[in-house]
Write a protein that binds this DNA or RNA. Sequence first.
DNA 1: AGATATAGAGTAAACGTTTACTCAAATAAT
DNA 2: ATTATTTGAGTAAACGTTTACTCTATATCT
Lengths: 344, 344
Amino acid sequence: MKKSTNKPINIKKIAELTGVSVATVSRVINKNGRYSKETEKRVLDVIRKSHYVPNMSAKGLRTSKTNVIGIVVPDITNPFFSTFVLNLQMNLFDKGYSCLICNSNESSSLEEDQIQSLISQNVDGIIIMSGTQAYSSLSSIPTIYVDRPVLDERPNCVSIESDNELGGYLATKELLDQGCKEIALLMWDSPISLSNQKTRYKGFQKAIKENKKKVKTTKIVADSTNIFDGEKAVSQYLKKNKLPDGIVGLTDTLAIGACFALNAIGKTVPDDIRITGYDNSYLAQTYRPAITSVHQDTIKMAELAVENLLDLIDNKKLKTHHIKIPVELIQRGSTRKESYSSNK
Amino acid sequence: MKKSTNKPINIKKIAELTGVSVATVSRVINKNGRYSKETEKRVLDVIRKSHYVPNMSAKGLRTSKTNVIGIVVPDITNPFFSTFVLNLQMNLFDKGYSCLICNSNESSSLEEDQIQSLISQNVDGIIIMSGTQAYSSLSSIPTIYVDRPVLDERPNCVSIESDNELGGYLATKELLDQGCKEIALLMWDSPISLSNQKTRYKGFQKAIKENKKKVKTTKIVADSTNIFDGEKAVSQYLKKNKLPDGIVGLTDTLAIGACFALNAIGKTVPDDIRITGYDNSYLAQTYRPAITSVHQDTIKMAELAVENLLDLIDNKKLKTHHIKIPVELIQRGSTRKESYSSNK
DNA sequence: AGATATAGAGTAAACGTTTACTCAAATAAT
DNA sequence: ATTATTTGAGTAAACGTTTACTCTATATCT
């Protein structure tokens, strides 16, 4: 059971090897000044040769700064979130941060556990996507809420939302413009009262109200945003109800699930019924017919998220704590008969 | 600029409040014995009331155990990897571990940087998916290689691979069984010499060789495993070459890209050409026609990965350091004309 | 009853950094 | 030429834990 005892080299060793004090080594590493050009070179040389890697636990303990950001996401499997997380991670890595990533499954209790664990890891900041509630334990940590209005008005947090009301409006308007007379809203069962989906619903209602002609509306609620849960919900709905001529899916995955259910009973999109999605994830692009979807600029959102988070961490003064990102409707084959090209 | 100075409560404070020493508190927390049932209760009560959360940096420094696992993944956006990561994360969280997740983009240099960063975070272990090379810096850290034969034979690492040769064989065999006479292998350009794709290729060759009738084979190489890169590669290929009657896609995403390219020139799957994918990700299930694909049991692989990693961390003796997981061909509409049900 | 083990608890060192204090030497200001 | 500042560098404390040693009081064994 020979335990590998090749202890990692530390700052003290570097100091010895170079013939200076640990303080000097530390200063060189952190570029804090108070050393000559020449000692710097010597220290750096030794560091390079000895494959020194700093001990972040010690650093974190001493400075209470870990250079780790916690990211809480409902479901990394959803392409909308996974691309978002990818963007976050890349942006953060460039600035010298690592990411602790948690899947909350949209479960409040799991989310809370994971936030606890992030806190005890001393993360410097947290980015929560579609969080389900406000956590008092977060109050001392710089936090970015993504895709969800912030509940607790404290100075060290920022919310970044895309314009969900406009998104809901645009999607619904598209169906109305295409002449739909009976529109179903396909949503999912989420524990959160103040969710993005509520706001999208507002946009939906607005579009309906604005419309000159009266249209019938209904709601279909899926168990989750999962494709197959979407399919299930729509199939069940169709067993007891008349086929609507338009469906506003509040997620691309739900929209595709709806397509499945319709295929199964021999209905075709967009001839028998038109469908919109939301998120403009690559699923919407790759499904056939391609799904008309509300595009959220995840790249910009991710950029803003890390930029603002780092500002919060540095105690910088922010212009605003509520950022809203515009959305855009991408029209594709699921709402209009036309030739489409495969990408974009 | 009032800095929030509500310092987090620590073990010392707990000790004071309870009227015992810090050592006792620590022992209670770690359930190390050497305290009475009664003091335990008192300490735990105080802890609960004061919302104490342990400082992992300090703990990590002292014990050189951080309860953090590093995960390196080529592209979290790929559903195969994202579901895998989800499974890993859930399994690890249950055992009290957090995950530091890195995207390597299949770039060796980025991968190396990220591994460095994981090491300096003192991670207790690392799980690398489709890593591009062996890193000497990893030698002291328990490591699991997933989906890639291990290069460095050291006691503290384990490789977990699905049976890529069999997978390649099964996919190819399916096309041969369906009567294909000219089969293209659709692969991607990866920097790694010893990759899973090489092994799948072996299976491909084996199936071809075994076949009674002579079949023509070609290779198409995409820039990445990305759907659109797959599409591009196939379109370009088809401009200069005759249409094959079967394509073995070494990834579901590539297979779907191929479908796009074929759609674009008016060819239909599986009538004009049959296609297989690999990974059996949900893309394969949700695309229409659904893609026949080689299923890898990601759930079991993830379970095995964390189980073995924790064993390595605990210095347990392992039965084997090379684990191979069986694969299974899931037949769907892309290779055979038949009615299919939407899920599974 | 005496010897010995054990249970319960405290003291203080150690983990690898950073940084507030020093301090001497060199440089700049008067 | 004195005084004031800057530069380069060292000393040692501190961050929050864990744990190897102690130590006392109680329980267990001859």
